[in-house]
Amino acid sequence: MSDELPVVLCPDSFKGSLDAAAVANAMARGVHAACPKAQVRALPMADGGEGTADLITHTLGWEWHLSSVHGPSGDHVTAGWGFDARNRRAVIDVASACGLDLLPADRRDPWQLDSRGVGELMGIAIEAGAEQLLIGLGGSGTVDGGAGMLAALGARFLDADGRDLPPTPAGLTSLARVDASGLDPRLENIEIVVLSDVDNPLTGPHGASAVFGPQKGLAETDIAAMDAHLGRLAEAIDSAGGLHCPAHTPGAGAAGGLGFALGCVLGGKARMGAAYLADLIELDAAIASSQLVITGEGQIDGQTSRGKVVAEVVGRARRLDVPVVAVAGNIACSEAELTDFGLADARALCDGSITLEQALAEPARWITARTQALVEDHLAQHD
């Protein structure tokens, strides 16, 4: 095999540790340690979660903007978003405006939080000239059904006396009707692409409240009440002028119901985040010109095959007959399962040689080491 091994690096982030770009940088050091003349191309990936906007912006050379918007509790936060002025496209992470990480643990009460900052970011991007909005749904801290976002875009939520209500779930307990006539008319000409990796409906046992509510601070005893609230909200919006699709549409429950507001109310088109991003960065072409693909994520397990970055990368590389290896923080699969999945090899940071604490203290060091070992073994097998 040539010393100038062409390698593509396309990892996801290691959540709570390193973003995807930092993971790719650590992998690149490992590749060059094993093969100094390797031709390395880094194309870090995401699935629509936190960091998607930053990743798309910097991978494709878009402009990066910072805007002040309302955070989930009403305080102002500075949110970043990307803009492709040439093609009039913008990319937004909902987490930047209503993310769980914006809230200290003692303020994570979904009844008191809303997503208005997301709507404000959308308006700012539209004002800048965007005609297409890419919106990553991961990492939200709200369960408001997108009411805050819709309010920021001009919808009104009214009680029986016609008085405006705050768009938090607690504020909408006396909701009587929704007035959607004031929605920003520019939305009619905006293409909204919703990037996600979940297919949950808005309500029910697999809905936003039951599945994601507890992660965001919703008490187990409040799940049924929040679920009922989201159902009433959907009915009120439907009565105000109809929905593009019903609330049980797969993906409507994403991001605490922002999937419902963006898709069912505003007509956005849902896309699996990893697949959409792979197309956007032309991953297939990069893989086709490589001899080895290296991917990775925090944990490879039974959920990896369900729309995650590693599964997307493996599927594309298999079609192009290029071997794929992976580095993960932890691997909860057998070697046989990894082979069936399509990985030629995989290494975990926590493989028994170091502790979890050591891996978390120096993740880049261990990603580099595991990548070096993978590449050395790959070269040995193909000499």
Rank of each mutant, 00 (worst) to 15 (best):
S96T: 11
P185W: 04
L175I: 06
N25W: 10
M226R: 01
V194Q: 01
V40A: 05
A286W: 06
A85P: 07
T59R: 15
G307R: 06
A176T: 00
N200S: 13
H382K: 14
A236Y: 01
N87I: 05
E120Y: 04
Q299A: 14
T371D: 08
R156G: 05
S353F: 11
A125Q: 11
D75L: 08
P246Q: 03
T355R: 10
V40D: 00
G119P: 01
E312I: 01
G242S: 03
P104K: 02
G259Q: 01
V77T: 07
K216G: 00
S196I: 07
N189I: 10
R232A: 07
V31D: 09
G182V: 00
A252K: 02
E312T: 15
A24Q: 08
A151H: 10
D301W: 09
D106F: 12
A285Q: 15
V375D: 05
C245E: 10
A46R: 09
A254N: 04
T173Y: 05
Q215I: 01
A311D: 11
E191N: 13
A176N: 03
C10Q: 00
Q112V: 06
P104S: 01
L55C: 12
D321V: 12
A180E: 07
G204K: 05
R163L: 10
G16V: 09
G217M: 04
G352P: 13
G30H: 10
L218K: 03
R318I: 14
I367L: 11
A346R: 10
A311G: 11
L172A: 09
A255H: 05
Q132F: 04
E131H: 14
A180S: 15
G148S: 01
D19R: 09
A234K: 00
S239E: 05
E376P: 10
L356F: 13
R88V: 03
V211M: 01
A359H: 04
G49D: 06
I354Q: 11
A369Y: 10
H382G: 11
N189M: 08
L100K: 05
F260G: 02
P205G: 13
E362L: 15
Y276K: 06
A20M: 07
I56A: 02
A348E: 08
L262I: 07
E235D: 13
A34M: 06
L379Y: 07
I331P: 07
E131A: 12
L243W: 00
G204V: 12
H206P: 08
G82S: 05
T173E: 14
H70R: 15
E120N: 06
S334E: 08
G71F: 02
A380F: 12
S289G: 14
R29E: 13
T371R: 08
I56V: 13
A26N: 04
P72E: 02
P185V: 07
A317W: 04
D222F: 02
A26H: 03
E297S: 06
A90L: 02
A224L: 13
N330C: 09
Q112H: 14
L113E: 01
R29V: 10
S73Q: 08
T295W: 12
Q132P: 10
L66H: 15
M1D: 05
L113W: 07
S115C: 00
R186L: 09
